[in-house]
Simulated assay, not measured.
Amino acid sequence: MYGSVFRDELFAGQTILVTGGGSGIGRCTAHELARLGAMVIVAGRRAERLDATAAEIVADGGRAATAVFDIRDEDAVAGSIAELLAAHGPICGLVNNAGGQYPAPLAEIGRKGWDAVVASNLTGGFLVARELYNQCMAADGGAIVNMLADMWNGMPGMGHSGAARAGMLNFTESAAVEWAASGVRVNAVAPGYIASSGMDHYDPAFARAMMPRCAAATPLKRMGEEAEVAAAIVFLLCPAAAYITGGCIKIDGGSSLASGLFGLADHDRSTPFRGFHRAAPPRAAQGLDRND
């Protein structure tokens, strides 16, 4: 059972949509929300991954459903949201987690690649949030959590993703103001270096080489856990965050504050929170100390 720090049945009677719920942080977050009593809808483009996540949740005693659609397809988003509302009733929470990118220097990114990453990490999230707001939350209220990244000092090597994530922060702030009168809170989380299965999308040699470097560049001297991101998302969705909107929680072990001007002391004093009982470390971590 998921080792959540939140009280049982915190989201009982609520339906929450998690995009990108078939793997990584989305899968972990869906498990925690279900553990806390929510009816979780996991959405994405690949039915087999979504079905696997939903089956895990049901096996653990939770409730889950799936929705297969491409967040970049405006008509598909509008239609899918309508179908979900008809099938499950009001959706009170959205975890706008779906996205993706690939490493490349700016000079080598073509228009097609740029547009694809911006669509995945900015436009798609906007479309899902807009449709859910217009079709449900404008009348019923709710909470939205958008996914960013550690893009505060630029994202050299992934500039397309950095630009999109920065745009998502501004969208978060704008929506928080515009939608407040409808009882909708909009916040964001910005994970840093997370030992997530999402790393398996990168070249294994690249990911394996980067993991120790990521840990070394972080004041807490380790990579983060999927459960540590999920916990922040769950907090922003829950009633304890009722006076928080337009904000962004950095979940990066302090990496966004490490300028390089001052050295970082080596230590092993940071204890990870490993609440996800079904966590699957990335393949690149095999054979490595998870705190490296």
Rank of each mutant, 00 (worst) to 15 (best):
A64D: 03
P281L: 02
G89Q: 13
A143W: 00
W114T: 03
L236Y: 00
M210F: 06
E32T: 06
T271I: 13
C248I: 04
P272M: 06
D150T: 12
G24A: 10
A138N: 05
L237R: 13
A104P: 00
V68W: 03
A65N: 02
I244N: 02
A284K: 08
R165M: 04
R278T: 14
C92L: 13
A280G: 00
E56L: 13
S270H: 06
L237I: 12
L127M: 13
A67W: 09
A227W: 10
S197T: 15
L257P: 00
A104M: 14
N146V: 06
A59I: 07
A98M: 08
R45Q: 12
V128N: 00
Q101W: 08
G159L: 10
I57K: 11
A87M: 07
N97D: 08
G113V: 13
A107M: 15
A64H: 08
R290Y: 03
L84I: 06
I244L: 10
A64G: 05
R274M: 11
D292E: 12
I109A: 09
T245F: 14
R27V: 05
P282K: 11
G247N: 14
G167T: 09
T15E: 05
S256H: 15
G246W: 14
L33V: 02
V177R: 11
E173H: 09
A231W: 00
V229M: 03
D200K: 07
A78D: 14
A231I: 02
A285F: 14
P282V: 13
D60M: 08
D51T: 11
P90H: 06
R290E: 08
E178K: 13
N291L: 14
E83V: 02
V118P: 01
D73S: 07
K221P: 02
A241I: 06
E9H: 12
N97H: 12
V77R: 11
M151N: 07
R27S: 07
F126W: 11
V18W: 02
F206T: 08
M151L: 00
M137H: 04
G183N: 15
M168R: 09
I16Q: 14
V128T: 09
V18G: 04
G254Q: 10
T53M: 13
V229I: 11
I16V: 15
G254Y: 09
R165Y: 07
G247Y: 08
I244Q: 08
G198H: 11
A129R: 13
G167A: 07
G3C: 10
A216T: 06
C248K: 03
I233G: 06
S256T: 15
M155D: 01
E178V: 12
S161V: 05
C248M: 12
D289I: 09
P105C: 08
N121P: 04
G224K: 14
L106P: 03
L122T: 06
L106M: 13
S197C: 03
A240Q: 14
S255N: 05
W114S: 02
G247M: 07
S182T: 12
S270W: 02
W114G: 04
R165H: 11
G141Y: 01
G263H: 05
T123W: 05
Y243G: 01
R49V: 04
W152K: 04
H277N: 05
I194D: 00
G110E: 11
R278Q: 10
E74K: 09
L288W: 07
Y133I: 08
K112S: 14
T172K: 03
A82N: 11
Y202P: 00
G183E: 15
V186S: 02
Q14M: 13
P219V: 07
A190S: 14
P239D: 03
G154T: 05
